[in-house]
Design a protein around this nucleic acid. Structure first.
Lengths: 349, 349
DNA sequence: CGACTTTCCGTGAACGTTCTCGGTAATACC
DNA sequence: GGTATTACCGAGAACGTTCACGGAAAGTCG
């Protein structure tokens, strides 16, 4: 750990300075009753002057309460995670809470348990879990009585959750392509073990089934632009002429795919239409600008914090499940298919 | 705050279960001496079985030490911030520290002071500040004796810092364009009050001065793709024909600029060359793939944590200033200028 | 065998705060 | 004027842990 600090100001210092008891200082600072207006303002003035900063450790120790929330998140590098983190941090602060991180490099249950235990050791008031896919029942022991909320996590109805309707989002994207006249629609999915990847895959299947279309080819990616690039090349190699549109499971993979297609001489959207997910701020400036599904990530974070805080205060009236509806953003990476999809071939480039 | 929890296991519970004193349990858990091997393993086994989690609040209260680092960061939405955060969190954890977040929405000194005070109230062991540009002297009071490290921050030599050599990075990018034969080089800068923006601007000026070139037009952006788009349009409107290359202060703005140029019928790099900064994972898949300056963000975070930890342990031998050298990544968004730069005009598009 | 060292363990105090209770002075009531 | 009420304040305990010390049992040495 660390070497000790020099002394910080305590309420005893303030009490001595003011000529009152530490208890009176405590009352002044916490805004409790049983103290006269003059004493309070006098104490507060001294506290301000001395630069008093309450010792949260001591406070939390005796009051058995905490003013820090914990957050566990996967893939912090990606766009969604960051947005959620920021909005969670903001919502937490406006509610008077700090935010602590228990990241996880690995994705197995052990790592998650370790992260939960670490946060619980610090006695966080509650925990938000973003895109954590693990059996809740296996975690109950670790959580003990610490309240938690799942964000885009595979906790189903077993735990309070805030979810973006990924399946619906994927259906929207796929339906958009179907409406344009596409009948052979491929999918570049996210990696295994990702709730969002699985739901987006399912939505693609649902939309195709409803339109009585057979699913097009499927390639797995890992949410990176590079993997999208490679997935698109794999599609071209193994399924050329057997798809006229691609649903990529996020914007980055869509970007990589578009690049791969164009490198091979296919124009987007003339030869292949591509849709993505997330609507990153850059998607609009891709070439062509990317049709994608927009998610309100900051609302996800806000609702998550609200949901957690409601549990903390015992508000059973607050709904335990929140579904956020995404919206489709049509840009220029999607269009009607060419008339003879089966005969598609790279122009002499 | 929050309602109290049900009881967690304490060392007293373990002591009672084992028939030893709480002190013995403490020794077993902390791996101190003065305890027999058998007793230790017996105690640890019971602790494990009962699911003991040390109360960090109590521990930190009495030991006057903390196992949490604090981090203050600006623009958490952008690529660099996230990368740094992730690497800081990782480095902190491997060193046995947690990470707490003190964000700031505003950028004035007051907001920073509030954030510092909040973190100090939680008695963090030290604070990392990423891209915080404020007078250190104004903050000394807030920091009191809490050690801190600046990452890409404008603390100069006044505080321990880890910096990417932004000025050198910008010179590299500009020199690359000069070497290609460009003599009229514009700049899309970052917003005012950003250390990195200011240094990159300066590097651009330096390289031009050294080559005895007069600086090309300058437009201010805000690091977003949209602002790059608008800046490029402003360049076209006010300075058409007076530049053949653009140094954009980050990849996102470069992307927006490229899009704007191409929408106006200018080809990149045939008519205009564009370089960016940061080398986001997507930059490689832009069209054209973006020439940019790569920064080792994760090294920035690692070094920052190391630097902070060295201060904590009083290692005065560890250098207080670290400069990270960026590398230039040449891709296809830059090329030799057209022969008659002054007569450049959009092709009939 | 006595004295000294080592090994192991326990007791009391402290960290800074809040909680519970009790007490004094001033005010209100009849 | 006595009593009940109110407004304000202080003393003691507790939270869970580590630190400083002391002490008993066992081993070591002459």
């Amino acid at each position: 750990m660390t070497r000790p600090r020099k002394k910080e100001i305590t309420i005893n210092d303030i009490a001595a300075e003011c000529g009152v008891s530490y208890q009176t200082v405590s009352r002044a600072i916490n805004g409790m009753g049983d103290i006269s207006k003059e004493t309070r303002s006098r104490v507060l003035k001294v506290a301000e002057r001395l630069g008093y900063r309450p010792n949260m450790a001591a406070r939390s120790l005796v009051s058995r309460q905490s003013s820090v929330l914990g957050m566990i998140s996967r893939d912090v590098g990606l766009y969604g995670s960051t947005q959620v983190m920021v909005s969670v941090a903001k919502a937490a602060r406006t509610a008077g809470y700090g935010l602590m991180f228990g990241e996880l490099e690995e994705e197995n249950v052990d790592a998650i348990q370790r992260a939960v235990n670490e946060l619980c050791a610090h006695r966080v008031a509650g925990i938000l879990m973003f895109q954590v896919d693990a059996d809740v029942r296996a975690l109950r022991d670790s959580f003990r009585n610490a309240p938690f909320v799942g964000l885009n996590s595979d906790f189903g109805y077993e735990a309070p959750s805030v979810l973006v309707d990924q399946e619906g989002a994927s259906e929207m994207a796929t339906n958009h392509l179907i409406d344009l006249g596409h009948s052979e629609i491929a999918h570049i999915s996210g990696p295994d073990g990702y709730f969002v990847a699985q739901r987006r895959h399912q939505g693609w299947l649902n939309a195709l089934a409803r339109a009585r279309l057979t699913p097009g080819p499927l390639v797995k990616g890992d949410f990176s632009a590079r993997s999208g690039f490679e997935a698109a090349n794999a599609l071209l190699e193994n399924h050329k002429g057997r798809f006229t549109a691609v649903v990529a499971a996020n914007d980055q993979m869509a970007l990589g795919a578009i690049r791969a297609f164009e490198e091979s001489g296919f124009r987007v959207p003339d030869d292949v239409s591509v849709v993505g997910f997330d609507d990153t701020p850059e998607a609009e400036f891709f070439r062509p600008p990317l049709s994608t599904v927009k998610h309100d990530f900051s609302r996800l974070g806000q609702l998550g914090v609200q949901c957690l805080l409601a549990q903390l205060s015992g508000l059973s009236s607050f709904p335990k499940l929140h579904i956020i509806k995404p919206t489709f953003v049509q840009r220029l990476s999607t269009g009607a298919p060419t008339s003879r999809p089966h005969e598609i071939d790279p122009p002499a480039a």
